[in-house]
Simulated scan of single mutants.
Amino acid sequence: MLSIKDFSEMAHLSAQTLRYYHAEGLLVPARVDEQTGYRSYSFDQVADAMLISVLREAGLGVKQVRRALDEPDAAPGLLREHHAEVQRRRAEQDEAIRTAGDLLEAPPEPCLRRVPAMTVVSRLAPVTPLGWDRQEWDLTEAILRAATEDLLAAVRSCGATPAGTPWRMLAPGRASGAEGAFWLIQVPVLGGPPADVPQDAEVHRYEAAEELSITMPGRTSPAKYCTAIGRLLAYPLDEAFPDDDAFPDAAFPDIARLRHLVREDGVEFSVPVRSG
C-alpha cells in the first residue's frame, strides 16, 4: 500500500486534489483507517489517477470524468462530444479575437453614400422570438439566414439573377406581435422584374436614396445593433446637407427602414436619409 504522500508524488496530484477526488467518488482510496482517516492507495491506482488527470487536462468536468469511468463503453463517445464542443468554443473565440482586433484598429464610423435604384424581390420571413438574450438572438439569426437562403434559391429558380448582398428589415407596419417580430427578406436582382415571382413574394422598385451606413465586424449581437443605431442617429446630417434643395428641412436617418446586410466579415446597418 502507498501512503497519500507517496501516491501523490507518483501520480503528480496534490494531497488536497486526492481528497477532493475521494469526496467526488472519482478516486476512492484502497483503504481508509476508520480511527485516523488515514488514506492508503494501491500501486494499481496510479493508472486510474493518470487517466483522471488526462481527462481533466482535456477539459472534462468532474461529472463527465465520473461518467467516463463508470461507463467505459460510452467514454469514447463522450470524449468526441467534448472535443466537438471545444472546437466550437475555439471557433467562437477566434472570431471574437478577430472582431476585437477590427474594433481596436478601426472603430466603426458611419458614412454617407448614394445608393442606386434597384429591383428587389421581397418575402416575409417566419416570425422570430422576442427577447434580447444570446440564445434567442442566435435563434433569430439562424431563422433569418435560412429564410434568406430559401428566397435566394427561389429567385434563381425563376430565372432571375441576384445582384449584391440580400438584406433583412423589420416589416413596415408589422414590426412585432405577441408571438414575436415580423421580418422582411429582400433580394436585389439584375434587370427588371423577373418573369415569374417566387411564391409568397413581391417585386418592387427600390428607389435611389442617400443612405447612412455603418459596418460592425463579426457576427451580429444586441450590443452591436444598439451601438450601430446610436452612431447612425448621432451622425451630423445638418453639416452634410447645408442648404441642400433635396433636403429643405432638417435631415434625419429613418431608423424605421433600417436594413441589415449580413456579410462574411460583419453586418452592415444602413438607413435612408429623410427630410423632416
Rank of each mutant, 00 (worst) to 15 (best):
W137S: 09
E141L: 06
A106Q: 13
E95D: 15
E105M: 06
Q93M: 06
S122H: 12
L79R: 06
P129W: 04
R80P: 02
A147Y: 02
L151N: 06
R98T: 14
L130G: 15
I143G: 11
P76R: 00
G101C: 04
H83G: 12
A142Y: 04
D102P: 01
W137I: 09
T99R: 13
D70A: 15
D102L: 12
E71Y: 04
E109R: 12
L144D: 00
A106T: 15
T119H: 02
V121F: 02
A100W: 00
P126N: 04
E136V: 15
P108W: 05
R134K: 11
R134L: 09
R134A: 15
L139H: 13
E136M: 06
Q87N: 05
L103N: 06
A75M: 08
P108A: 06
Q93K: 01
V127I: 13
E71G: 07
D138T: 13
D133I: 06
A142K: 09
A84G: 08
T148L: 00
A125I: 08
P126I: 06
R90H: 13
D150I: 00
G131R: 01
G101F: 04
A142S: 15
L78C: 05
L79M: 11
E85V: 08
A91T: 13
E95W: 01
L124G: 15
R90A: 13
E149M: 11
A147K: 02
L112P: 15
L151K: 01
A100C: 08
L151F: 03
E149N: 10
A146M: 08
L103V: 10
E92Q: 14
R90Y: 01
L152F: 04
E71W: 00
E95V: 07
I97N: 00
A74K: 05
R89D: 07
L103K: 03
A142P: 09
V121G: 00
A125E: 03
E92V: 05
L152D: 01
W132S: 14
E85C: 00
E136D: 07
R145D: 13
R134Y: 03
L78A: 05
A146E: 12
P129S: 11
A100E: 07
A125L: 05
L144N: 00
E92H: 13
A153D: 15
D70C: 09
L78H: 01
A153Y: 00
L139V: 14
D138N: 14
R89N: 09
D94G: 12
A84K: 02
A96I: 06
E95C: 03
Q87P: 02
E95G: 15
E81V: 07
H82R: 07
D73H: 10
D138H: 10
A117G: 15
T99P: 08
L130Y: 00
